[in-house]
C-alpha cells in the first residue's frame, strides 16, 4: 500500500530524515519508535504533505502513485489520515460541522455526491458510540477547551468517520490516562481491517499493549536503524534506547 524509498527531508536546510525505507502492506500495523528528536513526527508530517518540509530525495508512493506533488488535502482525498499529536483548536466550528465538511470535501474530490444527512447522522452516532463520545461533545467547538484525552479521542473519532486507507497515529497515547488509552486503542482496533493499514508512532511501549503491531521499527537520527516484530518494542521498553544509539554509531 505504502512504499517509502530512500526518503530525505529537511526543514530550513536542516536534514531531519536521512534515508528512510519503509513498506507497509494493507492489513498491517507498523509501530515506529525512537527517542525524542529522532524524526518520528517529521516522518508523519512528510507523509501527510506538510509544506514546511522539503523532500530532497527519495519517494513516497501510495498504491502505485507518487505523492510528491500532492497537497495535504489531495493526500487526504486519497485516503491518508494523520492523527495529530497536538490537534488545533478551531473556535466557532463544531465537531459535527467540521467532520461533515471534511467528509464531503473528500467525496467531492472523488467525484461522489455529498453524503445524505440521515446517513451522516447515523454514521456519527455509530462512531461516537464506538469511542464512547458524549452527544454534547459533538456540538462543541472543535478542540476548544478539550482536555488532552478528549482531543485524542476526537482525532480517532475523525479517523473512524473518514475511514482512511492509511492512518498515521502520531503520539496518540501522550496525555492519555489508562481508561482513555483503552477506549482509543479499542476504537483503533475495531477500525483495523484487511484493506487498511496503520502506522503507530510512539515513544513508549504502553500503547502497543493495546494496539498490537505486526512490525516495529526504530527511528534514530533520521534513519530506521532496526526493524523487528512486537518483541522489539518490549526489548526497548526494558533496555531503553541507549543500546540502539550505540549500535547505530558503531
Amino acid at each position: 500500500m505504502l512504499e517509502i524509498k530512500n526518503l530525505h527531508a529537511s526543514v530550513e536546510d536542516k536534514e531531519i530524515l536521512k534515508g528512510i525505507d519503509l513498506k507497509v502492506n494493507a492489513g498491517e500495523v507498523h509501530a515506529i519508535m525512537g527517542p525524542n528528536g529522532s524524526g518520528k513526527s517529521t516522518l508523519a508530517s512528510v507523509i501527510a504533505g506538510k509544506e514546511d518540509f522539503e523532500v530532497e530525495e527519495g519517494s513516497i508512493v501510495l498504491e502505485g502513485e507518487d505523492l510528491d506533488e500532492l497537497a495535504p488535502e489531495e493526500r487526504a482525498h486519497k485516503g491518508i489520515f494523520l492523527s495529530f499529536q497536538y490537534p488545533v483548536e478551531i473556535p466557532g466550528v463544531t465537531v459535527t460541522n467540521f467532520i461533515k465538511t471534511a467528509i464531503n470535501e473528500s467525496r467531492k474530490a472523488n467525484g461522489q455526491e455529498e453524503m445524505p444527512a440521515n446517513e451522516m447522522l447515523k454514521k456519527i452516532r455509530e462512531k461516537s458510540e464506538l469511542l464512547e463520545i458524549d452527544r454534547k461533545f459533538l456540538s462543541r467547538s472543535l478542540n476548544e477547551g478539550f482536555s488532552g484525552g478528549e482531543k485524542k479521542r476526537n482525532e480517532i473519532f475523525q479517523m473512524a468517520m473518514m475511514e482512511p486507507k492509511l492512518a498515521i497515529l502520531d503520539e496518540t497515547d501522550s496525555g492519555l490516562d489508562i481508561d482513555a488509552l483503552r477506549i482509543v486503542a479499542n476504537g483503533v482496533n475495531k477500525l483495523r481491517n484487511k484493506d487498511n493499514a496503520i502506522i503507530v508512532i510512539t515513544h513508549y511501549q504502553r500503547l502497543l499493549d493495546y494496539i498490537v503491531p505486526d512490525f516495529v521499527h526504530v527511528l534514530y537520527n533520521g534513519k530506521i536503524v532496526k526493524s523487528g516484530t512486537k518483541e522489539l518494542a518490549l526489548e526497548l521498553e526494558e533496555k531503553g534506547y541507549d543500546w540502539i544509539k550505540q549500535e547505530a554509531t558503531v
Binding site: 501527510a48 488535502e73 487526504a76 494523520l82 495529530f84 465538511t101 471534511a102 470535501e105 474530490a109 473518514m162
Partner: peptide, 13 residues
C-alpha cells in the same frame, strides 16, 4: 499548523 491540520482532513487550502 492550523492550516495544515485542516488540509490534512481533506479541506482545500
Amino acid at each position: 499548523d492550523a492550516l495544515f491540520y485542516l488540509r490534512s482532513r481533506g479541506i482545500p487550502k
